[in-house]
Amino acid sequence: MELNLSVDLGNGLRLKNPVLTASGTFGYGIEYADFIDLSRLGGFIVKGTTLNPREGNDAPRMVETPSGMINAVGLQNKGVDHFVKHIYPLIADCGSEVIVNVSGASIADYQAVAERLADLPAIHAIEVNISCPNVKAGGMAFGTSCQGAAEVTAAVRRSWARHLMVKLSPNVTDIAGIAAAVEDAGADSVSLINTLLAMHIDVERQRPSISTITGGLSGPAVRPIAVRMVWQVARRVKIPVVGLGGIVNADDALQFIMAGATAIQVGTANFINPAASVQIVDGISDYLRRHNISDINQLRSIIP
């Protein structure tokens, strides 16, 4: 049976399959080239890129929790100019969609990064991060109110004509309301969820386990929450939804698709199994064959 795995996220972003890798969990793709053929992915989202270089937070930045991990990296990156000059030439021809995750401390920062990326013809989409819990300014501060989320989205929309994905924070009362606000402000798609604000205490040392006290929880521990939020958002908005949160295998990915996601992102699983993303592509194909379904798009939103 001829299978169709390709999905259309709109405004020029068509993926050969629904599997992306999540920002901050896959470096610039190059780190994983020994383990997988990058061209087999629907695409990958490079780590959070800011206007100026950032050193990120102090160590310790990570603690493992039951079936999850809390991180507080704090958007360490060498800035958009470094990406444009030194990283883009290495990955522009990788045979897979390269999406850049964009972050900023102010709306002007987001716009400036988007404008620099507009010079790069192989970048067909950016993911605007209004949900990073680990930075003091910007990040999640924008993503936790409908007005803040809409303002950033509308501003970046004016600076970026290609596909605009907005990554949502789960640390809100009504994530579907935020999704609707960014849809109205011009987003082409929404991705969710970013990490859940969390905390762990080292009781022997009687202090927080990470330097910033709180951080972002990811991994299988958050998956049921993420599936629920994707389902809620998909019922509310018309633009495509990209689902992520604790996906480690094809069954997990299919939960998100059945809940309403057009595409999915593999995040923390890349740390555990560097080949997880491609194995999920294969696993989805196996599922479709087993269930005699020819097109992945037939499974989307089958949970009404």
Partner: peptide
């Protein structure tokens, strides 16, 4: 976490 230079946790 990753051991591959991707997560930037072990800096």
């Amino acid at each position: 976490a990753c051991g591959l230079g991707a997560c930037l946790c072990c800096i």
